[in-house]
Design a protein around this nucleic acid. Structure first.
Ligand SMILES: [Zn+2]
Ligand SMILES: [Zn+2]
Ligand SMILES: [Zn+2]
Ligand SMILES: [Zn+2]
Lengths: 131, 131
DNA sequence: TGGCGCATGTAATGTTATTACATCAATTGC
DNA sequence: GCAATTGATGTAATAACATTACATGCGCCA
């Protein structure tokens, strides 16, 4: 089953994230959407929950912020482990994927008999421009 | 230069984390240390900042919690990239290190001309017992 | 002695996320 | 048609996590 049609609130939140330069906190999204009738955090969090579930949005744990997925979502595409570089200077976030990392992590947790549900990889530092 | 002597507050926080079964939030630590004179969050956060700096404690970003480093700190020992498995069932956290992951990530960010300052790897799921 | 650095104490505030409860609309089964 | 169910929404209140601002105490040393 693919991604269902987005509801009004989900579309608004998705739009805000898509048009943003970088990641946004839930409360920043709320402020951006006040003109569209948003009044309470829960409206944002509920939409984000669904967007995360559909894989359209990622949560950056080390930032408590959210970013639109940078991959095409036209066709079904379950993009395994997602990693990010996050620049402390300009805030730029780059999403990337690597099969080798994924396999290595998979082997390591299997050795622990651990069952993975979600993997977070976030690299904080400085991008080329901000070095 | 090695780790300096810990101050009174740093020792108390370190002790709380060391004796705990698993990770603790800053406010949980605060509560544990009320009997020892702790009254405000800042006392905990200031101690944690130093302990993180010395590498004695790790922050779990996806949990907003802190855990004592499981490696020996007798001799100087800069333990590169740290990864964790975190069980959603029992809360058990396992710290591990892997040279292959480290090198692969290093190569990937170098290709972006990105300069890494801190790497977060956290795997949420279920441990052997909680599967 | 005075200045400095650094750990500390305390209060207030800021930021992020959830719980609880009510309403509304679409769908389903009778 | 009409209850029952499901899922989206609205609103308020509260909980959980973290920082800012300002004041005090203490060791060190020029
Ligand atoms: Zn993505
Ligand atoms: Zn940058
Ligand atoms: Zn460690
Ligand atoms: Zn477990």
């Amino acid at each position: 089953m693919g991604t269902p049609e987005l509801t009004k609130n989900q579309s608004l939140v998705m739009g805000a994230l898509t048009h943003a330069e970088g990641p946004m906190s839930a409360y920043t999204i709320l402020d951006k959407l006040r003109d569209h009738g948003f009044r309470a955090p829960l409206q944002v969090y509920r939409a984000l929950d669904k967007l995360l579930e559909y894989g359209l949005v990622h949560r950056l744990e080390s930032l408590n912020a959210f970013v639109a997925c940078s991959c095409p979502h036209d066709h079904e595409h379950d993009h395994g482990v997602t990693a990010f570089t996050i620049c402390e200077g300009c805030g730029q976030v780059t999403e990337f994927h690597d099969e080798a990392i994924e396999q290595r992590l998979s082997a390591l947790v299997r050795a622990q008999s651990f069952k993975t549900e979600k993997t977070t990889i976030e690299i904080r530092g400085h991008c080329k421009s901000c070095a």
